[in-house]
């Protein structure tokens, strides 16, 4: 990220402007961060305090969090979200890497057509699939079950594309040598190629996890009972109640973001490259 850093120092403006720029960027950042800080503040306010003009809570209370955890199924939604996202991530990493390997390292009949079908499907809005699937899933009795939230996210078109790109950068000689040694095709994939493709695999996993974790319309349509909601659907539900309790909703917003924010700061490099990789590479 810093290849051109040292070369361009001579186009630097005067120190005064450097400070102005720094202060400007900092102010913009403050504006960007403020809604989230505001949510945190509001989540610690008493019910009446939300209406009062101050920014900080007059007294810091945990009642919103207590109410959230005792009166709603928040923990259940969290569990559902984690189960579904981890499930989609694991299954998606498996199917995308296998298919990506086949597209990169074998020649087979129908290869090009299949690959471009997958790529072309990426520009079709997901809303198109929701309508027939709703009818089909209802017939199959899959509405309100976990598989219906896991399976569609596993077949990630972009995941397949990325794995194919990565596998095709690995040398073919590796495969030939292993085949001469009598290595089976499955072992070839599992113990030789897959470990080498770990960076791409991680990125695909993160992509699928985030897509599943954030998805709203799909679980909104497919999940019918409150105990099967995911976090977005549950929180949206709290928000659309007759007299929404803002403190409680903000507590839910903060608490549901915490796991992701923690993961983000631990894996920021991977996550940022995961989310932007595709755009830059394709």
């Amino acid at each position: 990220m810093s290849q051109s850093d040292n070369v361009t120092t001579n186009d630097a403006p005067s120190p005064l402007w450097q400070w102005v720029a720094l202060i400007g960027v900092s102010c913009l950042l403050a504006v960007v961060i403020s809604p989230f800080v505001w949510a945190i503040m509001s989540s610690f306010k008493e019910r009446g305090d939300i209406m009062s003009p101050g920014f900080l809570p007059r007294t810091w209370v945990f009642q919103n969090y207590v109410h959230l955890l005792t009166e709603t199924s928040f923990l259940r939604w969290l569990l559902n979200s984690v189960l579904v996202s981890v499930g989609a991530m694991a299954l998606g990493m498996a199917v995308c890497s296998m298919a990506g390997f086949a597209f990169a390292k074998y020649k087979f009949y129908g290869q090009t057509v299949l690959f471009w079908t997958v790529i072309a499907s990426m520009s079709i809005p997901p809303f198109t699939t929701v309508i027939p699937l709703f009818g089909w899933m209802a017939k199959l009795g899959l509405i309100n079950t976990y598989p219906v939230l896991i399976l569609p996210f596993a077949a990630n078109a972009f995941g397949l594309f990325m794995m194919r790109q990565y596998f095709s950068t690995l040398p073919d000689e590796l495969l030939q040598a292993a085949r001469i040694d009598g290595c089976s095709e499955i072992r070839l994939f599992w113990s030789i190629m897959l470990p080498l493709a770990r960076p791409a695999l991680g990125v695909v996993g993160i992509l699928i996890f985030i897509a599943s974790w954030n998805s709203f319309i799909w679980p909104l349509v497919m999940m019918r009972s409150e105990d099967m909601f995911t976090l977005p659907v549950g929180i949206a539900g709290l928000n659309s109640e007759q007299s929404p309790e803002y403190g409680k909703i903000m507590a839910a917003a903060v608490l549901s973001s915490l796991p992701i924010i923690t993961v983000f700061f631990l894996l920021q490099r991977q996550i940022i490259s995961g989310l932007t990789h595709g755009a830059v590479k394709s």
Partner: peptide, 29 residues
């Protein structure tokens, strides 16, 4: 991208931060 700007790496990460909050939670906030 300007090399003379301080804390660039920090800013890059910090501005990316809202992207980690889900659309529904952002809307609620």
């Amino acid at each position: 991208n300007a090399s003379w700007l301080r804390f660039r790496q920090f800013f890059r990460t910090a501005f990316f931060f809202p992207m980690t909050i889900s659309m529904v939670v952002s809307a609620v906030i």
